[in-house]
Design a protein around this nucleic acid. Structure first.
Lengths: 249, 249
DNA sequence: CACGCAACTTGACTGAAATCAAAATCGCCC
DNA sequence: GGGCGATTTTGATTTCAGTCAAGTTGCGTG
């Protein structure tokens, strides 16, 4: 099974970055992008399992994912792990730490991952001088708010099939936003982790994926997913009709 | 049963507003607050059931709740209502509309409610001139992000008692943040609406409240709630130990 | 390549929340 | 105060995801 979904390598400057329209440079003039460029630190790729930052760590920077993927994880008081999100290239991580000045969760690379690190104090200062940049930051935060609300909605649904259908459609859309196939993609996280995020145990994840495949909605090979019957998946996800939350996040 | 929890009337300017530290004026100098004041529109109280804005409506303003309470509601494709949040005095509403330029949900007053309306274009312009104001807006958005993540976490829990325990503790904390009793408060929303938010049907809400009361954790009179055994509620909410997410949102 | 561990699958069983149905209560308006 | 509609409660039953137990597969490391 060959690899279906791949993000091509992004360039080493914001102006030429393929993910520009999802990230801070969007809406900025060429000159302003140049200024932003000067504060962005392009970190070397980190290996799978590496931490970008840890919960409780002092907040200094936000991070834009360039390649790879990241999960946001919290260690609960009872020793369990809770996964609160998955970040793809183009996502900006760490915005939740701005208010409290420390990171509420740990960011762990799901595969080899490269990020742009943007020191927040410098971003803040630059934003004071470049209003468009500051506005773009606010827009990105608004976008993240919407995404979190959408997750909240999905998690009020009890049915495992529905939860899975919604999250697959959300991934589908996120991949499409990045120029990849909406119908065939590779999920970077384990079934276990995805289940943790969805509030479903591994047994249920296994059964639910299998049911969706047997019903002809999906075709699955390991982590490779093909959405076979988009209409049926959407009907399952949202009730009798398409769209609604999908159009927002 | 007399009314236990009440927010006193806020003053008609930002500087003297009791909710200042939860809202945009926080961290601003007296002069800057004066400038903010000049763009804030203090709307007359609206009646219970009134809309502050509707889903799909063009985004022009954000709203700070001064008195009363508001639910955020979305009409789903299948005709059902989904409730995505409850806003108390000091909360800033509408931040999720910044990116898409239209409101994703409808804001409905749960009781007589007054808000300060802040036209966003004016706020944006003022923020360009007053960096501290813009930074405060970003902090408020970061706070909202945290709160949404916390909701997401609660909703991965399957047990109705745990969901209810967590949400009561969150309300408890929010009331405490506003100078009210953390242990005795009146919930402004119906059991139906709270259940919708939690993904629990009315029957389960009824049973779960009753169980928590029978077990001695709560004392309930209609919408008035008293948390009787804080330790037991926290143990129920978070497993064997206190704190963790509670400390963040 | 072999081994060990983590991830995943499968089957049987259980229990909690949803569903269904109906009754009771509450709040609002005339 | 009465009526009506919405909300809430109560009881019986069903459903489905979690738990328990064990087996299988995949991946990474030496």
């Amino acid at each position: 099974m060959t690899r279906i979904a791949t993000l091509s390598e992004t360039r080493s400057n914001c102006h030429d970055c393929r993910l520009r329209s999802l990230c801070l440079p969007d809406n900025l003039s060429k000159e302003d992008i140049g200024e932003l460029d000067s504060i962005v630190q392009r970190r070397k790729p980190v290996a799978r399992g590496a931490y970008l930052f840890q919960a409780g760590q002092r907040f200094n920077s936000i991070f834009a994912v360039r390649t790879g993927s990241v999960k946001a994880s919290t260690l609960l008081a009872n020793g369990d792990e809770h996964i609160s999100g998955f970040h793809l290239p183009g996502d900006v991580i760490g915005l939740d730490a701005i208010v409290s000045r420390d990171h509420p969760s740990t960011a762990i690379a799901l595969e080899s991952t490269s990020v742009c690190e943007i020191p927040y104090a410098e971003l803040e200062s630059l934003g004071d001088r470049l209003p468009t940049l500051q506005h773009q930051l606010v827009r990105i935060m608004s976008r993240e708010l919407l995404a979190e609300q959408s997750t909240g909605h999905l998690l009020t649904r009890r049915a495992a099939e529905q939860r899975l259908a919604v999250v697959l459609l959300k991934f589908s859309e996120r991949f499409a936003n990045r120029g990849l196939s909406a119908l065939r993609f590779r999920l970077p996280m384990s079934r276990l982790d995805l289940g943790n995020y969805l509030g479903l145990v591994p047994e249920t994840m296994s059964r639910t994926f299998r049911r969706l495949e047997e019903q002809g909605l999906l075709s699955i090979a390991g982590k490779e997913i093909e959405i076979v019957d988009v209409c049926a998946i959407k009907a399952l996800a949202y009730g009798n009709n398409e769209g609604d939350l999908a159009a927002k996040a």
